[in-house]
Write a protein that binds this DNA or RNA. Structure first.
Lengths: 110, 110
DNA sequence: CTGTTATTTACATAACAAGATATATAACAT
DNA sequence: ATGTTATATATCTTGTTATGTAAATAACAG
């Protein structure tokens, strides 16, 4: 089973590609089939499918196949982990700034 | 000059590595020298320096060399771009959910 | 000046990622 | 049953990333 760190690795790596981010953008507007998603791109379909599979493994999107058509959805919790990661760091960082400020205030007093 | 997309690519790629994220974590606590940052890792120093250079090119950290010692800092705006990217998508996504809700409400009425 | 410390540079290599083409499957239309 | 459409899988090439070792620089200590 993949640990927390691997998971975040995956998410960051998944989003570190313009094609995949563009797919995310498109899916923000609502679900779309593979073909619909692929049309804006020059790239060959199999290459594009790679990106979709990476997005799905990164838990950014889901998909369901009905007949021969696969429809893709942005996962409602797509950005949750990454937002948590950011807010954790922001908290640490701000705690540190506060500490620094206190320290400086105390310096002034003495 | 690098465009917006390249920039975000860089940031995501930069953070898609456990070593580099660990450095970020450490620097949230305050500045540190190269040697201090490197000690927790098994990796050879030149390998580690690569990571620092990637973090610096990704505008996540800055550094200043005094004498032979380089001190690294987390940039105050380290996560700004990525937070903006996230909040933009969240906005799009929520706008869409609102539209969907309206649509469903209207369906009920008719 | 000489040795030591703190990086830095210069390669080398192995693993991985992005793209392509060619082929396969599987559902639908007739 | 057969052709067409919508994906899927397999395999290959090429570029990039992560790591390493060896040697270089540059400041400081004595």
């Amino acid at each position: 089973m993949p640990n927390y760190d691997d998971h975040i690795d995956n998410i960051f790596r998944t989003l570190a590609d313009p094609t995949r981010r563009a797919v995310v953008d498109r899916l923000c507007e609502g679900p779309a089939t593979v073909a619909e998603l692929a049309t804006p791109f020059q790239m060959a379909l199999p290459s594009f499918l790679q990106h979709l599979s990476i997005l799905e493994k990164g838990n950014i999107i889901t998909s369901k196949k009905v007949g021969r058509v696969r429809t893709c959805y942005l996962r409602p919790d797509a950005f949750k982990m990454i937002e948590e990661w950011l807010s954790d760091r922001r908290t640490l960082w701000e705690k540190r700034l506060d500490a620094l400020e206190n320290y400086l205030d105390n310096q002034q007093l003495s």
